[in-house]
């Protein structure tokens, strides 16, 4: 009788102390550890992995995935998901080539605006028609992909006279490729948006506790629309960059970005339930995937085996970084 209560009291104390220690480690720290482990492994495997040339490669290709993942992050932050990014990327990539030919630099704003509109449509289907974003974007994704085929059923190449317009994407400044710079600028802008603007904060609050946000007078529909519009905007940027890099568009090019972008966000430690995580997590998640992708080639892992290894690493990554304390029921 005397001892029992004491046992009950002390045990949680030890656990609590341990939990507190663990509590200080944020998911993003674990992602960084993962990156260091993978990076070390790769650079031991082949020292060329850390050559300037290869680092530039990783960064400039990582930047494209980063932008796609940052867009996806908005959809996930508010507790949804956007499966239509693939369609948007494809559509913009073909549209952009046509537009550059006919309206020159105006193609950039037009394409970005298209991305915003497509995102807005997704948002409206979620907020007004009230269809879960998974279904809504699965549906609109199919529709947008069809639109891409309407614009051009086959990959198109830009006329060489138009190459000048692509320099925005393809050039480099002091040896740093523009794609990387664009990625960095996007990253900083989104960081700033979430950090310094009211609308950015609303996204977190809606994702974290939508009921509370609503009761505090937040315009829920507007916030969610903004999140999806930004997702569409990022997808449009990816579409433009891909067109720029390839000097041509392709109506299927976006497909691989749908699940890859989700994977990059989740590996960074962001839960699909929304409200947690942020640009830094996504940055490291993307870096992790890009390092793996590139490193497996540089180290020379059998091509036949790379896909399987990537799957294992994603599960491992999420197993390590996923913050289970915040989601009691894992679906």
């Amino acid at each position: 009788m005397e001892e029992k209560p004491r046992e009950r009291v002390t045990q949680p104390d030890v656990r609590k102390a341990a939990m507190r220690l663990i509590g200080r480690v944020k998911p993003v720290h674990l992602t960084i550890v993962l990156i260091l482990v993978v990076g070390t492994f790769m650079s031991v495997g082949n020292k060329e992995f850390l050559s300037l040339y290869n680092i530039d490669t990783i960064l400039s290709f990582g930047a494209i995935l980063l932008i796609a993942a940052l867009g996806q992050m908005f959809a996930i932050l508010i507790g949804g998901i956007d499966l239509s990014v693939g369609g948007t990327i494809s559509l913009i990539s073909v549209m952009f080539v046509f537009l550059v030919h006919s309206v020159g630099y105006w193609a950039y704003p037009i394409c970005l605006a298209t991305g915003l509109v497509l995102g807005y449509i997704n948002g409206v289907i979620l907020t007004r028609v009230k269809i879960p974003s998974f279904i809504a974007t699965l549906g609109t994704g199919g529709i947008i992909t069809s639109l891409a085929y309407v614009v051009s059923p086959r990959p198109i190449s830009a006329a060489s006279d138009d190459y000048g317009y692509f320099a925005v994407v393809n050039g480099s400044v002091w040896g740093v490729s523009n794609v990387f710079i664009i990625g960095l600028v996007t990253f900083v802008c989104i960081l700033a948006f979430l950090r310094f603007s009211r609308a950015g904060r609303n996204i977190y609050f809606v994702g974290s506790n939508i009921k509370m946000a609503w009761m505090s007078g937040t315009d829920i529909a507007e916030t969610r629309n903004v999140a999806f519009m930004l997702c569409g905007l990022c997808a449009a940027m990816v579409g433009i960059i891909i067109s720029g890099v390839r000097y041509g568009g392709d109506p299927v090019v976006g497909t691989s970005y749908v699940l890859n972008s989700v994977a990059a966000v989740v590996v960074g430690g962001t839960a699909l339930t929304g409200g947690t995580g942020g640009v830094v997590s996504v940055l490291f998640g993307t870096l992790f995937l890009s390092l793996l992708d590139n490193g497996m080639n540089v180290v020379g892992i059998d091509q036949y085996f790379q896909q399987a290894l990537l799957g294992v690493m994603i599960i491992l990554g999420v197993a390590v970084t996923f913050d289970r304390t915040k989601t009691p029921v894992i679906k």
């Binding site: 699940l259 799957g311 679906k331």
Partner: peptide, 14 residues
């Protein structure tokens, strides 16, 4: 305790 979305995505690739 990994969400099914990401578990099954990874498994599919594997």
């Amino acid at each position: 305790r990994i969400p099914s979305f990401i578990t099954t995505l990874g498994i599919s690739w594997v």
